[in-house]
Design a protein around this nucleic acid. Structure first.
Lengths: 338, 338
DNA sequence: CTTAGCACTCAGAGAGAATGAGTGCTAACA
DNA sequence: TGTTAGCACTCATTCTCTCTGAGTGCTAAG
């Protein structure tokens, strides 16, 4: 693969990203020292090789996803963040945070705002986190709140309505039972079968207390998968997309989940033709993981058109994930100190 | 106002609701026994009086909001629900429910699904409900969860990070303090000034515990206003609307709140020109209250185009609110029994 | 191998012309 | 006096056609 050809491809992508119009040979002349005819010849070859395509005969060229792939992997030069930009990004994150979720959420919103794209946050932690506390609190006639707190600070409550009131003794038994059997257990270990065994172990209390236990199981399942999408509205106004696809995407964001899980291992750029089962044509997804104390804690991602300013937005994304990593790790360490 | 004229207006609205096209005099002939010329004369007068308008000279007539107003208030005949329809609606509501919020939420979703409109739910209860329980639960280093339960079964938790760990004694004091000073207090009584007095009453504990109290205040404020919109996506595909307006509506649904508050007193139909500050042109909002044991508990509403099937959807809405009223009241009574 | 030149293609914009749904008005009718 | 048939008129919509220009591929000369 010729050096000039790569330069031309790069120029086409750069140009197309800013204009959104098919790029002609003359426009490339500004970037590459050669006549338009030469460039045309090269472009014709790039098209044969599948990196470019023409919407119609008399139009310029548009990158294919294969073209973008090469561009992102090999050709692109990221715009390094200026000090000013860093300050701006910092100002969009909170100085302090209460839960980790809050921190990550604000980063996600900030990124959505900056890029005018949708963003996605996935926590990998739920899978590995432990139950650190379970409380049952009576709140009315036959009504109870189950409160579950996990080792990563996640809190979940669920209202539960029983067929009868629990006695003080029953509540106390449940309290102890949970302390002994569930505290410190990873969420992932609470499965249908393990729960069944547990309820059996409750002996005489089984009948009355098993509804509470099965609610607990439901709660862990709800905690388990934790993917949030922000700024979907930004996609609606993007003319690169088919509106109806965006709407159906908004209706079931769940399809992202499986995809996201596979991206905790580093910066990752995927184009829609490369992902099966993802509805939005002409889109790309960029994800980057963040971690706490050296252990992957989740990933932040960006969903936008394929024609997106990679050189600018990837540094944004990476800056945010590195800040999240720093802030979460720092908090973790000061906690250990005291 | 002539009887025939009213019939014609009614026919125009009916026709326009199904076709979405301006209605001509010939189309009206199917509904009213008169020649097209006569109908044209009458329509011209209806236009002069402001009930109809023409998009352009050679088009049929479209109702103005004044026309809709008259139609909804005086002319429309509601389609009574068939037994089948009732069954269908019933099947969309849960047989049983845990929290009242869940029940109302499912009705809201069902209504959005049926009508392909957005729906809105407002609870009037927060304002009148009492604090029935507050718990503070330590969850980690200097981290505490405040759990607040109100008399109407609402549960809210908030994670709170302090500058220091609380002693067992401090926690106990706070527990008692809350029991004595806050239990049974209406949410509305928790104001900035009342909170200030309370913290002062804590004496020596003030310094350490006041952050918890101020979090409590925040929580009550968050509980206070409770308006949820569902099915906004349905509005996006509605061609009667300006997309950008829908998007900006989705971005700040808060503007609904003030409006909704004023609608707890019965079935209410408002057209966008009648509401100031509501962004979506050409829309109408229909609301109906529901109650528990004779006391208004909230309202369910429908946000759609002005060209909406009032005769069909108003009965849907009213059926749902009456079912909610029944189910909530029933639950209330059985609770009292036992 | 590069480039100037030229013929060719084709989407998109713009100008008429044709269509037809619907109107207002007038004059005759009951 | 209210109703209606008839007719001329309006105007959004659709279509057809042409024109334009950006951009191409190919060829032949440098």
């Amino acid at each position: 693969m010729d050096d000039r050809k790569l330069k031309i491809l790069s120029a086409v992508v750069d140009e197309y990203i800013v204009t959104g119009e098919p790029v002609g040979s003359k426009a490339i002349m500004a970037h590459v020292k050669a006549s338009s005819a030469t460039i045309r010849n090269e472009m014709a070859e790039l098209e044969k090789q599948g990196f470019l395509e023409q919407p119609h005969t008399s139009a310029g060229r548009v990158p294919t996803y294969k073209g973008y792939r090469l561009y992102v992997d090999k050709l692109m030069e990221q715009d390094p963040l200026s000090e000013e930009e860093k300050k701006k990004l910092d100002s969009m994150l909170p100085d302090d945070f209460v839960t980790e979720k809050d921190l990550v959420e604000s980063a996600s919103l900030a990124l959505a705002d900056l890029t005018k794209c949708a963003t996605v946050v996935a926590n990998s932690t739920p899978k590995f986190s432990l139950i650190s506390k379970v409380e049952v609190i009576p709140t009315g006639k036959r009504m109870y709140v189950i409160l579950m707190i996990t080792s990563n600070g996640e809190i979940k409550n669920k209202v539960c309505r029983l067929e009868f009131d629990l006695t003080h003794e029953q509540l106390e038994f449940f309290d102890n039972f949970v302390k002994q059997n569930l505290s410190g257990i990873p969420l992932s270990e609470l499965t249908d079968t393990s729960i069944e065994k547990l309820t059996e172990a409750m002996g005489a209390y089984m009948m009355t207390l098993s509804p509470l236990v099965s609610e607990l199981l439901k709660m862990t399942k709800e905690l388990d998968r934790d993917v949030v999408v922000n700024g979907q509205k930004n996609l609606l106004t993007c003319k690169d997309f088919d509106q109806t696809e965006i709407i159906s995407f908004m209706e079931n964001e769940k399809e992202l989940m499986d995809f996201i899980d596979s991206t905790f291992s580093g910066l990752n750029v995927k184009f829609s033709p490369e992902t099966d089962g993802f509805v939005i044509h002409n889109s790309s997804i960029i994800t980057a993981p963040f971690s706490k104390g050296g252990k992957t804690a989740g990933a932040l991602g960006l969903i936008g058109p394929m024609r997106i300013d990679y050189a600018k937005f990837i540094p944004y994304l990476e800056y945010f994930t590195s800040r999240i990593t720093d802030m979460m790790t720092e908090r973790d360490e000061t906690d250990d100190d005291k």
